[in-house]
Design a protein around this nucleic acid. Structure first.
Lengths: 122, 122
DNA sequence: TTCATATACTTAAGTTTCTTATGCATAAGA
DNA sequence: TCTTATGCATAAGAAACTTAAGTATATGAA
């Protein structure tokens, strides 16, 4: 579809903090065994009730990089005459998810400390 | 000081997610009335027990941009023959803090939904 | 039948926001 | 004297996005 006529307003949404996308992708793949790009965008949208939108321009290059880095492998399937490229974690990818998620959560805790110093960490 | 001899390892720390720095700065200024750059770096370090480090190369351009955007004003003071450039929120800045912090927290909630769908939001 | 929307992947140009490195300057302690 | 701490500024380069364009098939509505 040509998007020349995409005059629709972009209601959503909370902006993605740069640097979190790869971790999100890895985490989803840890839970789902294998997913294709479009499915990932839909999954994120569903989990956040439409508040968080992963754009294709961000997602696909990220998937390609994770594959190039050896964290993901691919297999293509044809469904309804359309190609799906399924991604899944490699062994290395499986190890990396944990550290990436841990690192992100550590950052989030620090962010809470700065933004809301009164609250304990719990 | 010339840093040519800075061979020391950089132990720390959880990487800053791109996009959060301006919000952090605004939030700190909401609580402190006025602060200077170096003070901000030290405050963040203290609040996070040294885990989060704001680099000067990131901070100063951010402060300049927030000032250019009309969210901050400055006044300089000389202390011990060294100049301090104090930043404080403008009226507009004071309004923006709230929306920026709200937007960031909204994102964090969505991130939790994606990373840990089992946990409720509480 | 035509148009719009949904599905599905790719890539390029441009922007934002960092990191890294450099530079300047003063003060204080080893 | 050398290093560390205090204090600011800025430039080059990289990372990670946004925006926009392209390609292609399927489906439902007008």
């Amino acid at each position: 579809m040509h998007k020349k006529l995409k005059y629709i307003c972009n209601m959503s949404s909370s902006k993605l903090l740069k640097g979190s996308l790869a971790t999100i992708v890895l985490k989803l793949l840890e839970e789902h065994d294998k997913m294709y790009g479009y499915q990932i965008t839909q999954r994120v949208k569903a989990l956040t009730e439409g508040e968080l939108t992963i754009t294709e321009g961000a997602l696909y290059p990220t998937l390609h990089k994770l594959e190039a880095d050896g964290l993901l492998t691919t297999e293509t399937q044809k469904v309804d005459n359309r190609i799906r490229k399924y991604y899944s974690l490699t062994k290395q990818g499986n190890a990396e998810v944990k550290s990436k998620v841990a690192e992100l959560e550590e950052f989030l805790i620090n962010l809470q400390k700065v933004l809301n110093p009164k609250l304990g960490i719990g």
